[in-house]
Computed example of a mutant assay.
Amino acid sequence: MKVIAVNIARPTVINWRGKEVKTGIYKLPVPDPIVLEAEDVKGDTVVDRKYHGGKDKACYLFSADHYPYWKNLYPDLDWNWGMFGENITVQGLDEADIRIGDVMKIGSAVVQVSQPRQPCFKLGIRFGDQKVLKHFITHAFPGAYLRVLSRGTVAAGDPVTILERDPRQLSLKNIFELLYRPRNGQTIQKAIIHPHLAESCRKDLGKALSRIS
């Protein structure tokens, strides 16, 4: 894997159902390296820390490999890296292979995979179409939230190296499917007790389990 772009956002105020809402979804590539810190990316906009930022979701990683699919669906958008709100756009990310708990080195930072991205209405606002949420769930290539184990800098062109593979073998794709297409209660229970799964995702899996119990 390799970093294609690093992206940050200035705060943007949008109108949502008659109310003004501030968001950091409008990320754009920056020429200088970004700094991954314990709870966010230095200089980035994180507004609603209930769903973004914090130690379990300090940074969001998305694959450049998926952009052609989305450009075909939304050809009239003004496309740039960072369209999905990702801090780091990478080449070669495979959600079926990358596991919860995997430890990676990106630039000089050391990070750990904590959960797949769960889309919210702000992605719909970014795309000008709330139906993008259904497309995102159906396509099932959500990217990865990361916790930062060792602060460091990341720049376009940096390699992404897997340092440790988690032995529990629960991939990002596995977790995403359990969240949105829960069928196997035993597998959900296995995921819930994973020590490296983000706490908010653990709670959402508990809700998914209750729907099929």
Rank of each mutant, 00 (worst) to 15 (best):
M1Y: 02
M1Q: 01
N7P: 14
I14W: 06
W16I: 13
R17P: 01
K27W: 12
P31W: 10
A38S: 12
D40R: 13
K42Y: 13
K42N: 01
T45Q: 09
Y60A: 08
Y67C: 05
Y69L: 00
P75V: 03
D76G: 11
D78W: 09
N87K: 09
G92W: 08
D94P: 00
D97M: 11
I98F: 09
R99Y: 11
I100W: 07
I100Q: 00
D102F: 00
D102G: 01
D102L: 11
K105W: 01
Q112F: 03
Q112W: 06
I125P: 00
D129E: 05
Q130R: 13
Q130S: 14
K131N: 15
V132E: 06
K134R: 15
K134A: 14
H139W: 12
Y145C: 03
R147Q: 10
V154Y: 06
A156Y: 07
V160W: 07
V160S: 00
E164H: 05
P167Q: 11
R168Y: 09
L172G: 08
L172H: 03
K173T: 13
K173C: 00
R181N: 09
N184P: 01
Q186T: 09
H194C: 07
A198W: 07
S200W: 03
D204K: 15
D204Q: 14
L209N: 11
I212G: 06
